[in-house]
Simulated assay, not measured.
Amino acid sequence: MKRLVLIFLMLAAPVWAVQPDEVLSDPQLEARARELSKELRCLVCRNESIDDSNADIARDLRLLVRERLVGGDSDAQVMDFIVARYGEYVLLKPQTGGSNLVLWAAGPGMLLLALGVGGMYLRRRARVSKSADKGLTEQEKARLKEILKD
């Protein structure tokens, strides 16, 4: 029973990430802030949104998002501001264009390269094994007999 309670408490931990003093009085602005917070990565935690993180920097980022929204910024302006300040690493879903295109294409490109190299290796190996099955030529057999006589 104690384990079950502990499991439920651990699953509910992200609910406590956003502190009551951070919540905006306007429900629409709060909903926008929560949506934006789910798209931003905590700079301390690995692959955890700032909405789920209890880290101090995540709290600062949540407050920054709310400040910008209260100031009248659109969602895109808030995201642009935070990306300009912290870099694209802060995005949980990075953009697929520009210099990131190289990173997105590198994985599949390396896989195709490895498949090509593996295919060439197997093809060469098959050719070598066919030529090895022919056996010795008459000259090689004669030379072998000569060596064995000595």
Rank of each mutant, 00 (worst) to 15 (best):
R59S: 14
A17I: 02
M1Q: 07
V102T: 11
V44Y: 14
K149C: 04
A12H: 07
A126D: 09
Q139L: 11
K149G: 04
L148A: 10
A84K: 09
L112C: 02
L63D: 12
E35L: 11
L122K: 08
D56S: 15
S37F: 04
P14Y: 08
E140W: 10
G135K: 08
S25K: 15
D80I: 03
V83F: 03
D133N: 09
M1L: 09
E88Y: 06
E67N: 13
L29M: 12
E48V: 15
R125V: 05
V18Q: 11
A84W: 05
R124G: 13
S37K: 01
E35Y: 14
E30A: 11
F8S: 11
E48P: 00
K145H: 10
L112M: 10
P94Y: 10
V83A: 01
Q19W: 15
I147S: 06
P20I: 09
R3L: 12
I57S: 08
R62L: 05
G107D: 00
R3V: 04
E140N: 07
S74I: 05
V65Y: 03
A17G: 03
A84G: 13
D52I: 01
Q95F: 07
K134G: 08
E140I: 10
A105H: 02
V15M: 14
C42W: 05
L6W: 08
E48N: 09
L29D: 13
F8M: 13
V23Q: 10
A126C: 06
L24I: 00
L113N: 00
D73V: 01
L29F: 07
K2I: 10
R46I: 12
A106W: 04
M1G: 09
F8N: 13
G72Q: 07
L103P: 00
K149L: 12
L63A: 12
E30D: 14
L4T: 06
A55V: 08
D21C: 06
F8H: 11
V102F: 15
V83S: 01
G97R: 15
I147G: 03
L6I: 12
S131H: 07
G97Y: 10
F8G: 14
E22P: 02
L115I: 09
G87Y: 05
G97T: 13
A126M: 11
Y121W: 13
I57R: 04
L69K: 00
V23K: 09
D60Y: 06
A33V: 13
G97E: 11
V65H: 02
W104A: 07
V18I: 15
D60Q: 14
K130G: 03
Q19G: 04
V65W: 08
S74D: 12
D150R: 06
L63P: 01
V90H: 04
G107P: 00
N47S: 12
S99G: 11
R124W: 15
Q19H: 14
G107N: 00
K130I: 04
C45D: 15
Q28I: 10
L113A: 01
A105E: 09
L112V: 01
E22K: 03
K145C: 06
